[in-house]
Design a protein around this nucleic acid. Structure first.
Lengths: 171, 171
DNA sequence: GGAAGGGCGCGGCATATTGCCGCATGCGAC
DNA sequence: GTCGCATGCGGCAATATGCCGCGCCCTTCC
């Protein structure tokens, strides 16, 4: 099978995932930022797995550039804290699919495979437990507020103390 | 301005929204199901606002058909309970944007206007309060389980009693 | 027809969580 | 130096959750 591109600033995650994908017969090239991803990208690559958050940069910037490089390349966006807005943006920019972390190598391979044009099958078959949805939303809002506890609590319409306790529980 | 299509099985919502859009100079044609939407659709229409849930049918079915009718038509999906999976599906099927209810006429007009090819601006600027995210997720999971309280509770990893109480609180 | 299994609504109780208050500290702006 | 805001945290009252158990209903199977 031809080469795949993996771009993720989490070096440990990238190394482990690359090894898992290699075990599945994939030839994986790893980069840790947008520039590195572009340097490694090749028009003959079958697919790319891009982390949405690359340090201070957005993996979204890579999508139209990879799409310009190869119309056939399958592009999968990966994110720790999923949101509809970024999912919509990613697909509009040319990504084929969108998956949330933690994602197993099998899930990634499956998501890369389904460049469906009429697929109604959901990206994720099982709905998330409520606790998980809560924690992911909280993390995203906190990130959107630059780590501000007070700001995130206001946006979430919850008490600051409660947010602190929930964050302590997540850790 | 040319005609717009509005497809929503909620007749009250459709009537009120159509009136608001008409006040903004839009010529709105209203339908309440997939068949009605197709019957009303016109290749010269500038845009369409489609509810994701049309009774027992999915508004998603309309997207590729409207896209086949007109490549230039702006298609906006509207849903009461947003999910990333359906957002990704909608965009992949050809929708231009994806908005959650309740949506004002202004938000709809704005969402229809931004057929951006490089837009990073989020569809919704303000994050949802946690309570709202909870209730929306619960409703979606319940819908996915065909209204089964026991099934949804298991999927959400919460007690059946708790789910009953929360649902009672939403009503 | 009866048994079995599962779904469902609900009251009640123990436990957990939340909202709020208040205290102390730190930081940036003026 | 003062002010305003952010932050961490303990403690308390109020609220929510998990669980149990009861009773009823529906479907399937024998």
């Amino acid at each position: 099978m031809s080469a795949f591109l993996l771009v993720d600033d989490d070096r440990t995650f990238a190394r482990v995932l690359a090894r898992s994908l290699a075990r599945r017969g994939l030839e994986v090239r790893v980069a840790h930022d947008v520039e590195g991803g572009l340097a490694q990208a090749d028009a003959h690559m079958a697919g790319a797995v891009i982390d949405l958050q690359l340090g201070n940069d957005s993996g979204l910037a890579l999508v139209p550039q990879l799409r310009a490089l190869s119309a056939a390349m399958r592009i999968l966006m990966l994110t720790g804290y999923a949101s509809i807005d970024t999912a919509v943006q990613a697909i509009k920019l040319g990504a084929d699919n969108y998956l949330t972390k933690p994602a197993t190598a099998d899930a990634i391979v499956a998501a890369l495979g389904c460049r469906a044009t009429n697929a109604w099958a959901p990206v994720r078959a099982a709905p998330l437990p409520l606790g998980r949805v809560q924690s992911e939303h909280i993390r995203r809002v906190l990130a959107d507020h630059g780590g501000s506890i007070s700001g995130a609590a206001r946006a979430l319409k919850m008490h600051r103390r409660t947010l602190q306790r929930k964050l302590a529980r997540f850790s």
